[in-house]
Amino acid sequence: MKVKKEDEVVVIAGKDKGATGKVLRALPKEQRVVVEGVNLIKKHKKANPAGGQQGEVITKEAPIHVSNVALMEGGKPVRVGYRFEEDGTKVRISRHTGKDI
């Protein structure tokens, strides 16, 4: 996956198209990411009288497919490529500018 945790991304497809946020979690096995403030769902939590907890409705972010987000560089979405350094390390680069990300 070309998107990692802490990256700034923009949603390019779906109900939250145009929204930007930081990647909170990356789930590479499922090809999904959790983005801050995007794809919000409401989860109902059942009350537990024995434990003294009230029931509540929690709003949280759900994962979205990585193909629906684009990495942002300088406020614009960019495509990501790879380059290998001379010492063999793999570096992400912007396809548009060629700069390291």
Rank of each mutant, 00 (worst) to 15 (best):
Y82G: 07
K29L: 01
R32C: 02
R79Q: 14
P63W: 02
T97G: 15
A50T: 14
K15F: 12
A47S: 06
L40C: 07
G88C: 06
M1A: 15
K2T: 13
P49Y: 03
D87C: 10
Y82N: 09
L27P: 00
E36H: 05
E86Q: 14
V38D: 02
K43C: 04
V91T: 11
E73G: 14
R83P: 13
I12L: 13
V33F: 04
A47C: 08
V78F: 12
I101Q: 13
V9W: 00
P77K: 09
V91R: 12
E73N: 15
E56R: 02
T20P: 04
K60R: 02
A47V: 09
I101W: 14
V38M: 00
V38Y: 04
L27T: 06
V69R: 05
N48V: 06
Q53T: 11
D16Q: 03
E61G: 09
L24H: 03
R83D: 13
L71T: 08
R83K: 13
Q53W: 05
G51F: 01
G81C: 11
E30R: 02
K22S: 00
E73A: 14
N68D: 06
K42P: 13
G81S: 12
A26N: 06
N48Y: 05
A70I: 11
Q31M: 11
K60C: 05
R32V: 04
K60S: 03
V91D: 12
L24P: 02
V38K: 05
I64N: 09
V34E: 06
G52E: 09
E36M: 08
G98M: 10
E36C: 05
G55P: 08
R79W: 13
D7F: 00
G52Q: 02
A47G: 07
E86Y: 11
K2H: 10
E36P: 06
V10F: 15
V80M: 11
K99I: 01
G37P: 00
R25E: 01
K46W: 03
R79E: 14
G14Q: 10
A13H: 14
V3P: 02
G37A: 07
V78E: 15
T59S: 08
E30D: 01
T89G: 09
T97L: 14
G21I: 04
V57L: 01
K29H: 01
K45R: 01
V38W: 04
H65V: 09
H96F: 15
K46H: 05
K43F: 11
P77M: 10
P63I: 01
K46Q: 01
V69Q: 07
A13E: 08
G55S: 10
G98A: 10
A62K: 04
K99L: 08
E73P: 11
T59W: 12
A50I: 12
Y82R: 12
Q54E: 05
G21C: 04
K90F: 13
G18E: 00
T97E: 12
E30Y: 02
V35N: 09
K43A: 04
A47H: 04
V91L: 15
V78W: 06
V91M: 13
S67R: 10
I12D: 06
K46T: 05
K5N: 00
K76C: 10
E8P: 08
M72A: 12
A19L: 13
G55C: 09
T97V: 11
V9L: 10
E85D: 15
V57F: 01
Q54I: 09
R79D: 14
V34Q: 04
I58T: 00
P63C: 00
D87W: 09
V80H: 07
R95I: 14
V23C: 09
V34L: 03
Q31T: 07
